[in-house]
Computed example of a mutant assay.
Amino acid sequence: MDDEEIAKSAALEERHWWYAERRAMVRRTAAAWPAGRALDVGCGGGGNTAVLRDLGWSVTGLEHSPAGAAAAASRGLDVVRGDATRLPFADASLDLVMSTDVWEHIEDDRLVAGEAARVLRPGGRLLVAVPCSMKLWSGHDLALGHYRRYERDGLARLVTGVGLEIDDLWSWNVLLRPVVRARRRGKHESESEMEQVNPVLNAGLRTAVALERVLPLRRLPGVSLVVAAHRP
């Protein structure tokens, strides 16, 4: 993702339904774990990093892009510039490594998964969200610099292949998958979908995603996949 797209994402982050519900998902998941030392790999504008901070974690955001690092730092967050495939942290030094919509941007995702495993302490946790299913591949993925979208089995193999044990792997943004698929069908030109949304529509879309908290949809195909794992 280039600096222009990152700056646009940072500007949308506070109110856009997708970012807001992703933060809510991070908050619900991480709140169940004892706070410790965390790293948000590919933190972008720092919205999810701030969620961990507010939950009591001692959290650092790692961001490769100058624009993203500047946006996160402007929120008072601890940010370092760095490469997800060469994390500037010692072995077994962290209690949580989080990456939300980052692994798909890295050509060799085995490297970033292996680095996450390396820096986790025994018992340390991994929380990763990625886009789901090549059936949804479109110009949106091209615009954001994606190398792939993930299938459930492939993501599980990637995580277990670096020595981590999966605690849960679930779908997110399930109810809106038919809408997304219809919108993206046949669109191969590079064009990001991240844009301002009418406030009424924005509230409706956020409500649709929020409903998934109480409906049994986690095993159905969604727009994203989320995996929680730990280092034995």
Rank of each mutant, 00 (worst) to 15 (best):
R183F: 14
A84E: 02
G163K: 02
M134V: 07
G204H: 03
R15S: 15
V119R: 03
R157H: 13
D83T: 01
H188R: 14
P66V: 09
V59F: 11
H146L: 11
A203W: 15
G45D: 07
E195H: 15
E4H: 13
V128M: 12
H188F: 13
V174A: 04
A113Q: 05
S138K: 00
S224M: 10
R206S: 10
G42S: 03
L201P: 03
R22P: 03
V162A: 10
G45T: 01
E212N: 05
G163R: 04
R213I: 05
I6N: 06
Q196R: 14
G124W: 12
R219S: 11
A30L: 15
P178R: 01
S58F: 02
Y147K: 01
V112F: 07
G61K: 03
F89P: 00
P221V: 05
A38W: 10
S224G: 08
G124C: 06
A7L: 15
D141V: 06
V159H: 06
V97I: 09
R218A: 15
H146D: 00
A32P: 04
E14C: 00
E195T: 09
V200W: 15
A69V: 01
H230C: 13
E107F: 10
R15N: 15
K187Y: 07
H188N: 13
W33Y: 12
D2T: 02
A229L: 12
A50K: 08
L136Q: 03
L164S: 06
L155V: 06
V226K: 01
D91C: 09
R218D: 11
H64D: 12
Y147N: 02
R152Q: 13
R75P: 02
R152F: 14
A72L: 12
N202Y: 09
V119C: 00
V223R: 09
V119M: 09
L175N: 01
W17A: 02
M134F: 07
R15D: 14
P232N: 06
N48P: 09
T60F: 09
V119T: 03
V223G: 02
D54S: 13
M1W: 07
L225R: 04
S65K: 02
D101P: 01
G45M: 14
A10V: 08
G82W: 14
V97T: 08
G56K: 13
D54R: 11
A90T: 09
L62R: 05
N202T: 06
I166T: 08
L225K: 03
S138C: 06
G204E: 05
E191F: 10
E212L: 13
M1A: 10
M98W: 10
L52C: 01
E191A: 15
E107M: 08
A69P: 04
M194V: 12
N202P: 01
R81G: 14
W170I: 09
G46T: 04
G61L: 14
K135E: 12
